[in-house]
Nucleic acid binder design. Structure first.
Lengths: 237, 237
DNA sequence: TCACTCAAAGTGATTAGATGACTTAAACAC
DNA sequence: GTGTTTAAGTCATCTAATCACTTTGAGTGA
């Protein structure tokens, strides 16, 4: 009758508790698997199974020959599924639709929050945009925008959406004009600086809708006269 | 120079690919660990580590003595961190703020979508509300609302937010009036049926703000005259 | 003294085989 | 038929050992 929780699941939880109670920060190393095995009175393979679980969610990283490191995601609530195999255009459009639904509200919050350091991060993100597109890390304008909202859950949601999108083929080929992108970002940031939440939300929405249109246009160019536009329609309903 | 991807990570991906290519649906069983080990030419412990990773993200479930089962989350893009240790009121308020930021937009989409079956699901969710609160499964009104938006990413985001919230202490004690909850849900559904997205969004926002106020009031009652309202202020900035 | 080499120690990665515990379903007795 | 028992299949965990990678620092040479 004892609800079998499973040794590995319990062990996983104990390791997380250890990380928290000892206040281990991302980048620091955990004790070796051998030591953990001794401390929790289990064997090494069992510890490894627990660490693999934590690895899957980005809470820790197992570096061969080096050690087990705490990672950022241990403090995240919302994650992107690392095992998801995505990828058609419809999925990419769906992600953009989701962003259109939530980012305007985030921009509004950012304008209301008026956190000075967050605004600074967005400014530097504006410049970084000239660089090569990084995967989806910090420094991305929209991510910094979400961070500026002051709401960690919203920030993590946007990070997740962008992470998923980065795995899409469409992500690389989006030929949205770099300069136009920069200008529109600047406009959004401007509205936020003025504390004009309504305008910030509006410009964010327009910006994303423009990107969506560009992606659809790109796709139309590639497939040219192949007439299966049903995919697009299906994703817009 | 070969980017060491790690055997387990590669194996994890191969198992996912197998599930997809063989079109295994949630509820169905995977081959036994022994068989998988033979098929991919690795040993059983290695297979188990890969399965533990998939287990962490809810893609599979390992049932002792029974088998390894495919689970729903294998098709999800957005997940809640299963290893997150949650907690205080500020976090609960932050989650509600996030919902206030995104759910009105979702309600607007739902009104525009006008999917008949989705509306039916919301109707039945209305009645289920009289039952005991389930964990965070389907059947929850707000979850069905998100499903009705037609956007899977948004739906999964809301499921994740509610899943996290359910782990909060505050979740259980929220004494938001059951009847009032039901009535406000009915109002939202009514606006969606009429296709009035603006009104649906507005009512959803008001509804969530009322819940937030109730949570804060509850907390104020409990702590009574303990004057550390700084926690609340901090979450509202 | 400085820089380079390289050997050793520590750590994770993977393998191998064995035992225990649980679930399920078929075989059996009633 | 019904209920119990048995057996096979499966995951759970352990023990033990070998391999591979990383880091460090001692040693060597310039």
């Amino acid at each position: 009758m004892t609800s079998t929780v499973g040794l590995v699941e319990r062990l996983t939880r104990e390791i997380v508790d250890t990380i928290r109670s000892e206040n281990l920060q991302p980048g620091q190393t955990l004790p070796s698997a051998k030591v953990l095995a001794a401390r929790f009175e289990v064997t090494v393979p069992t510890v490894r199974e627990a660490l693999r679980r934590l690895e899957a969610t980005g809470s820790v990283e197992l570096k061969h020959g080096s050690g087990t490191y705490v990672r950022e995601a241990i403090n995240r609530r919302i994650l992107d599924n690392p095992h998801y195999v995505p990828v058609d255009l419809a999925a990419a459009i769906e992600l953009l639709d989701a962003r259109i639904a939530i980012e305007p509200g985030i921009a509004g919050l950012a304008a209301a929050a008026q956190a000075p350091d967050a605004v600074a991060s967005m400014e530097s993100a504006l410049d970084n945009a000239l660089q090569v597109e990084t995967a989806v890390p910090a420094g991305h304008f929209h991510v910094e925008l979400a961070r500026a909202s002051g709401n960690r859950a919203l920030h993590e949601m946007l990070v997740s959406l962008l992470a998923i999108n980065s795995r899409t083929q469409q992500a690389a080929r989006t030929s949205y004009d770099r300069l136009r992108d920069h200008d529109e970002h600047a406009d959004i940031l401007d509205a936020i600086r003025r504390g004009d939440g309504f305008e910030a939300a509006h410009r964010t929405r327009k910006h994303l809708e423009a990107i969506k249109a560009a992606v659809l246009a790109d796709w139309a160019d590639d497939t040219d006269q192949t007439g299966d536009a049903a995919i697009i329609e299906g994703s817009q309903r």
